[in-house]
Amino acid sequence: MAPEPLENRSPLEWEQFKELIELHKFYFENISKSAAFVFGLVGAIVSYVIATDIRDRYRLAAAMTVPILLSVGASAIGLLGAVKLRDLSEKVTNLQSELGLSWRPHSEVLPLLSAIFAVLFFLVACGLTVIVLHANLLPHSPAARGG
């Protein structure tokens, strides 16, 4: 059965498609900005710890608690987002098909992007945990070496 001509589509379907596109753009922008913010914050704290030459295990654990928790939290949210964004991707694809459109945003990239960030944040959390357990892995700051 041939799809209905585009002009016979209801305005509601077009409005839904437009809203899904806007939602897609919103999620893409916020996933990218949020990941950049959390990576920047974690990096800044870790840089501070290296610069101040904290090597005592308990002080190092206290200093790394926030970056580890941020990384674990961002990983969990990213994983949840990857699961939830599949629904958005399916709706965009279905509406594209119903409207007989040849183009749509590649909404299947959003769940993948969210999953990639989730894995990266998990790896960061694991790496920071290893550093807390093995403080000797941290490089010494130039000021601490006398140079």
Rank of each mutant, 00 (worst) to 15 (best):
V130A: 08
L110P: 06
F26K: 15
F121H: 06
L95H: 05
E19A: 15
G146D: 07
F117G: 02
S141Y: 07
L120F: 13
I45G: 02
V83S: 14
V109C: 00
W103T: 08
L138G: 05
L128W: 01
L99E: 01
L69M: 15
L60V: 09
E22A: 15
S107V: 06
F28W: 13
H24V: 05
F26Y: 15
E90H: 13
I31S: 01
A51M: 14
A44D: 05
L88G: 03
A82W: 04
L113R: 07
M1Y: 10
H134Y: 13
A135E: 10
G43C: 07
S10M: 03
I54P: 02
L133N: 06
L6C: 01
P142F: 09
S34N: 14
I45C: 06
T52N: 12
D87Y: 15
A82E: 06
I54E: 03
E4Y: 11
L88S: 05
I21H: 11
A135L: 02
M64R: 00
A51Q: 13
P67K: 02
P5G: 08
G78R: 04
G127K: 07
V83P: 01
N30A: 05
F26P: 00
W103G: 00
L112W: 08
E7V: 12
L110D: 02
S89M: 05
E98I: 13
A143V: 10
K25A: 12
I116H: 09
